Amino acid sequence: MNPVVHFELPCDDRERIARFYESAFDWTCQRLGPEMGNYVLATTAEQDAKADAPRGAINGGFFQRDASKPAQMPGIVIGVRDIRDAMRRVESAGGQVLGEPMDIPGVGAYVAFLDTEGNRGSLLQPQG
């Protein structure tokens, strides 16, 4: 089974969206630099050295909306063991892979897709 490991939401103003979720839900937002596309990581559940985050909790992030790219909508990120195999499975099931995997330093290989209903999702093969 391949679990949901992350969520993503588009934004027009990364400072505004970070302030909103920090204020409304006490999330911690880490604003990354231009080398990471000005992405904002959102921590929704704390972890400590003895235990993982609460069962079922996932963290996420906010990406800068870009009209030149497809599928600028909320999505989920699914953790997979083999991104190329997962891409083939998405296409075999009737979905559409959006481009080629990109390497996210310190994280792993990532590529977005559309399911048969036009919903955006992403695949992540953790670095390892």
Results as ranks from 00 to 15, higher is better:
residue 81 R to P: 07
residue 111 V to A: 01
residue 53 A to R: 15
residue 18 A to W: 05
residue 113 F to V: 01
residue 30 Q to L: 14
residue 61 G to F: 06
residue 72 Q to A: 12
residue 9 L to W: 08
residue 43 T to M: 15
residue 85 D to C: 04
residue 59 N to I: 05
residue 6 H to D: 04
residue 65 R to V: 07
residue 13 D to H: 12
residue 53 A to Q: 15
residue 98 L to M: 07
residue 121 G to A: 01
residue 128 G to F: 10
residue 95 G to R: 02
residue 111 V to K: 00
residue 31 R to Y: 08
residue 58 I to C: 01
residue 70 P to E: 01
residue 16 R to F: 08
residue 23 S to I: 11
residue 100 E to P: 08
residue 14 R to Q: 04
residue 126 P to I: 08
residue 94 G to N: 03
residue 43 T to F: 12
residue 85 D to F: 07
residue 38 N to A: 04
residue 46 E to Q: 14
residue 51 A to K: 15
residue 121 G to C: 04
residue 10 P to G: 05
residue 23 S to E: 08
residue 72 Q to P: 09
residue 2 N to T: 12
residue 103 D to Y: 11
residue 41 L to F: 11
residue 11 C to L: 11
residue 56 G to S: 08
residue 56 G to H: 08
residue 13 D to R: 11
residue 101 P to Q: 03
residue 87 M to A: 02
residue 69 K to Q: 06
residue 14 R to M: 13
residue 122 S to R: 09
residue 102 M to D: 03
residue 51 A to L: 13
residue 23 S to K: 13
residue 51 A to S: 10
residue 62 F to A: 04
residue 88 R to G: 04
residue 21 Y to R: 10
residue 65 R to W: 13
residue 48 D to K: 05
residue 8 E to C: 07
residue 27 W to G: 01
residue 14 R to K: 07
residue 14 R to H: 05
residue 35 E to Q: 15
residue 80 V to E: 00
residue 93 A to V: 07
residue 101 P to N: 14
residue 104 I to E: 00
residue 7 F to G: 02
residue 28 T to C: 12
residue 99 G to H: 02
residue 127 Q to Y: 05
residue 62 F to Q: 01
residue 5 V to W: 09
